[in-house]
């Protein structure tokens, strides 16, 4: 959308202007500092106090300037998000862009991305997340004491799988975010006619991509469950409960 592009460019220019006055802000502060120092030297206490007050104000002004620069940058990103969907991306041809808008959220997206959040590993396992990581609940705190180490390890892994899963998700998230951003619907499935307004045969829910479940986290939970199952299997085989 051309006018949105222009807007993003204008905000960028505004931000540049704010960036460029950093130099003169610094110069003003330095001038005030030198003046205050000279006054101290000359023993003009009252004058020095006032000028030092000016220095403080100018420091705060510099901080405000930096904040403004960041705020303008944020506004620019928001306009870019409006243009491109989520985050930065290569500008698309207009017909492809409209096609993506219509198709977004339908059968071109894998089901686990389409349907939103599944129950977390914590909820499935009944793990109480109000208990801190690696803390045990007060009751049955030492119930595992009599089990063999492998079983204790599996029990502990099951209890803490929520945190483990979260850690793995955090680590692998950048990779998946990159993959997700690079994912485009297959272009050769639908013929792109070079007409500006293809007839709308269906209306797609035009929402932003639903948040996806990080598969690495789910793999971790599955691995932990398998370990616990194996531990139980071993215990039963040995005749203990």
């Amino acid at each position: 959308m051309t006018s949105a592009h222009e807007l993003a460019g204008k905000i960028e220019a505004d931000k540049e202007q704010v960036a460029q006055i950093a130099g003169q802000f610094a110069a003003a502060k330095q001038a005030a500092e030198e003046a205050a120092a000279k006054m101290r030297e000359l023993g003009a206490e009252g004058m020095a106090v006032s000028m030092e007050q000016a220095v403080t104000e100018l420091e705060e002004a510099e901080s405000g300037r930096a904040t403004l620069e960041g705020s303008l940058e944020k506004a620019r990103w928001q306009v870019m998000a409006a243009i491109h969907g989520i985050g930065p991306g290569a500008p698309k041809a207009p017909s492809q862009e409209k096609m993506d808008e219509r198709l977004g959220g339908l059968d071109v997206m894998p089901p686990h991305e389409r349907h939103g959040r599944n129950p977390t590993g914590d909820e499935l396992m009944g793990i109480d997340s109000s208990v801190g990581p690696f803390q045990k609940e007060h009751e049955n705190a030492n119930a595992d004491r009599n089990l063999n180490p492998f079983a204790r390890g599996a029990r502990s892994a099951v209890r803490n799988s929520g945190d483990f899963k979260q850690a793995v998700e955090e680590l692998s998230k950048p990779a998946f975010t990159t993959m997700k951003n690079g994912w485009k619907p297959p272009t050769d499935t639908y013929p792109t006619v070079g007409v500006a307004e293809p007839a709308a045969t269906f209306t797609a829910p035009q929402q932003v991509q639903a948040d996806f479940q990080n598969p690495m986290g789910n793999l971790v939970v599955v691995a932990v469950l398998v370990t616990d199952w194996a531990a139980r299997g071993i215990r039963n085989w040995r005749g203990k409960s």
Binding site: Q78, V79, A82, Q206
Partner: peptide, 21 residues
């Protein structure tokens, strides 16, 4: 175009914030 409209509305609010700053 709703999604873009929401994002741009946020940008407009952000610019309002910039004016205040």
């Amino acid at each position: 175009i709703e999604a873009a409209g929401h994002a741009l509305s946020a940008a407009k609010d952000q610019l309002e914030e910039c004016l205040t700053q």
